[in-house]
Design a binder for these strands. Structure first.
Length: 316
RNA sequence: GGCUAGGUGGCAGAGUGGUCAUGCAGCGGCCUGCAAAGCCGCGUACAGCGGUUCGAUUCCGCUCCUAGCCU
């Protein structure tokens, strides 16, 4: 007998950096039977706490937080890894009779969750090094032409100056013998049978967002960001090319610690880079037609969101 | 008060008698395994007023402003 499956639900809380997602998530998880899943490509790294505004131990003891501190900064992490991890964690949460609250600002991860991600081979460091070497010799436009020869569709979509995507498309072709544009056509949403509620949290005024970002970075400096990055720098095995060290704030502090720029300049650049990150996050967010928007500057935003979720059947 | 050098888009900084500097910031967008990444697009700026010229940001004059030097 096919029993009617209990409806699985999930809440997506999305927003640009500094919009106050984490604090809000904590409030929601304390009121509703939710467990937090971080959707953040930087929070996965251990030892990167201040610059990522990572929830502290006390907070994490109060409410379960998943997918935080799961990688060493020398390791990589990808959208593919995230999807696998997130699906696993979500299954466990549902099995406990609870619901996942996916919180973060890594919009590609949200996108991959909702739209699905093709089953592609993982990154191959050796192959990438070979492609890079060849590109250094011939230039990326030439690599783009090589891609066009084997995968015209991908070449058409990828700009000739976009090394990252040209490299990935070539990599997948070399690894599988198939065009990435064909492989990408099959993908399955992680929310196929899930009742999803999408919340977008952001200061509606751009100036408010910019002020928050500047203030937040200054607080990070006061909280010891310099020492945190100095420690990572001193390990000796990390480089400016590691994805973890390319994160906003860390990249600029790294350059300062390496003696390339003054602290004021690093600070200036870090704040600007954060604004640019927030802008890209907002561009993704605007395309999320299901998302319900809330003003992060509204003093009562938490209650408004709580009410919205209750109406959607998320209260217990 | 005099002399000299300058006043170029939010900032920095080239340049020219008649399409276009450029960089940074900002704004918009793209996005399938590095995504807090990578990439694309967007600016009648030439201190003001006259003059010369077919045409002036560019040449001339005056005014204002700035910096340095002189009295």
């Amino acid at each position: 007998m096919p029993q009617s499956p209990t409806p699985r639900r999930a809440v997506l809380l999305m927003g640009p950096t500094g919009s106050g997602k984490s604090e809000l998530a904590l409030q929601l998880a304390q009121e509703l039977p939710l467990e937090i899943i971080s959707v953040d490509s930087a929070l996965v790294y251990r030892g990167m706490d201040i610059g990522t505004a990572k929830p502290d131990a006390a907070t994490r003891a109060r409410v379960p937080h998943h997918l935080i501190d799961i990688r060493d900064p020398a390791a990589g992490y990808s959208a593919g890894d995230f999807i696998l991890d997130a699906q696993q964690v979500m299954q466990n949460i549902w099995a406990r009779g609870r619901q996942p609250l996916l919180v973060g600002g890594t919009m590609l991860y949200f996108h991959a969750l909702s739209e699905g991600i093709a089953d592609l081979p993982a990154a191959d460091a050796e192959l990438r090094a070979r492609i890079d070497a060849r590109a250094a010799e011939l230039g990326w436009p030439a690599m783009h032409r090589e891609l066009a020869a084997v995968d015209p569709l991908a070449a058409q979509r990828i700009h000739a100056n976009d090394p990252q995507r040209i490299q990935r498309a070539l990599e997948v072709f070399h690894l599988t013998g198939k065009p990435i544009s064909i492989l990408q056509q099959s993908r399955v949403s992680a929310f196929a049978d899930v009742n999803v509620r999408e919340i977008a949290l952001a200061p509606l005024e751009r100036n408010d967002l910019h002020h928050r970002i500047e203030l937040r970075f200054k607080r990070m400096l006061e909280a010891g960001l310099h020492a945190e990055v100095t420690e990572l720098f001193a390990r000796g095995d990390l480089t400016a090319e590691h994805p973890s060290m390319r994160a906003v704030g860390y990249r600029q502090m790294w350059r300062h610690i390496a003696g390339e720029i003054a602290i004021d300049e690093a600070s200036r650049q870090a704040i600007a880079a954060t604004r640019q990150l927030a802008k890209r996050q907002l561009t993704w967010l605007r395309k999320r037609t299901q998302a319900r928007w809330f003003d992060a500057m509204h003093p009562d935003a938490a209650h408004m969101i709580m009410d919205a979720l209750s109406e959607g059947g998320f209260a217990k």
